[in-house]
């Protein structure tokens, strides 16, 4: 973290950037809130540690349209979201200074709570061990046991930025990101339907998933557009409400970088990333491996057309999986 702070102060001092998009310590000791630090205000409260899970790239849509240059700290996975947003002309790159920073996976506090720890007052990170102070005493856990779902299968390496800050070598966890999707595919249509009904009916339509998603970056979302005829529909009954997530998954298909923010922020714990991963898996199988945000040039397989593209009959050949 010190190297990051030094770098920012250096860039502030030589006038390269005017603001910094980073994380600030929040209300609880483990809360990290996206925050814009200014040259004048300094880096008071700045933090970068295992709790800075937020993907900051989406904030650049607004920040890059402001006066002056903004420095953004991008974890490896965030660099993909950044590229994708640039590809979609959502960020004014001339006002942005990108700095890639190392990441060893982020801690999901919800997982600690699920382990039965309540009244958490502080969490101290010491290498691979976390000391959790609660109202009822201290507990020690392994960092790798409480990583965010999105970090367990993360194999991303940082894409090119204006500046890169390297970290110590780190062995990533090696979970197959499509394993759960395959389990769902193996279910009968009825089982699968029941699974999704159960999960999606937890939704309270808080819109957190949409608001955090870097692919959901639209000035006016169809769900806010009365003219679309969808906005009111999704509120009329429970089943149509479930469709909200399916429509959203379709909207981000081919553009989702699998950053996993949707599932991370869901207060109801709906595994929304599985919908996106299903699309990614399908796209990989039908059109060849594709990673959205890998660069700022390529057209996604769903919005490009080649003579080698599979024929629509593939839907029948694959059956209802």
């Amino acid at each position: 973290m010190q190297r990051i702070v030094d770098k920012i102060n250096e860039l502030f001092a030589n006038g390269t950037v005017d603001r910094v998009l980073g994380w600030k310590v929040g209300e609880f000791s483990y809360d990290r809130t996206p925050y814009v630090f200014t040259k004048e205000g300094g880096l008071d409260g700045f933090a970068y540690d295992s709790f800075c899970a937020n993907n900051l790239s989406k904030y650049l849509i607004a920040e890059s349209r402001k006066e002056g240059k903004v420095l953004v700290l991008l974890k490896p996975c965030d660099t993909y979201s950044y590229n994708q947003l640039v590809a979609e002309n959502r960020i004014k790159t001339e006002n942005v200074y990108t700095v890639s920073i190392p990441c060893k996976g982020k801690v999901d506090v919800e997982k600690l709570k699920a382990m039965g720890m309540t009244g958490i007052t502080d969490i101290v990170e010491n290498g691979e061990e976390l000391t959790v102070t609660t109202l009822y005493g201290d507990e020690k856990v392994n960092r790798c046991d409480v990583l965010c779902e999105k970090c367990l299968a993360c194999q991303k390496t940082a894409k090119e930025c204006d500046e890169a800050i390297e970290g110590e070598a780190y062995e990533k966890p090696h979970k197959d990101r499509f394993a759960t999707v395959e389990e769902l595919e193996a279910m009968s249509p009825e089982e699968r339907f029941a699974f999704w009904r159960k999960e999606l009916s937890k939704c309270i339509r808080c819109n957190a998933c949409r608001n955090v998603c870097p692919a959901c970056s639209y000035i006016k979302c169809v769900f806010d557009n009365d003219n679309s005829g969808i906005a009111s529909k999704a509120n009329t009954d429970e089943f149509q409400e479930n469709m909200f997530h399916i429509i959203r998954a379709f909207h981000v298909a081919g553009r989702c970088t699998d950053c996993g923010e949707c599932s991370r922020v869901c207060p109801q714990g709906i595994p929304l990333h599985l919908l996106n991963r299903k699309f990614i898996k399908e796209i990989n199988e039908l059109y060849g491996e594709y990673q959205a945000g890998d660069n700022t040039e390529s057209r996604g397989p769903l919005t490009s057309f080649t003579k080698e593209d599979c024929e629509p009959s593939i839907v029948y050949e694959k059956g209802g999986k």
Binding site: A87, N89, I219, G300, T303, F305
Partner: peptide, 15 residues
């Protein structure tokens, strides 16, 4: 124009 984001996807698919 009030809804459009200029994301470029429509131009990508326009034959």
């Amino acid at each position: 124009p009030l809804l459009c984001n200029g994301c470029g996807q429509c131009a990508n698919v326009c034959p």
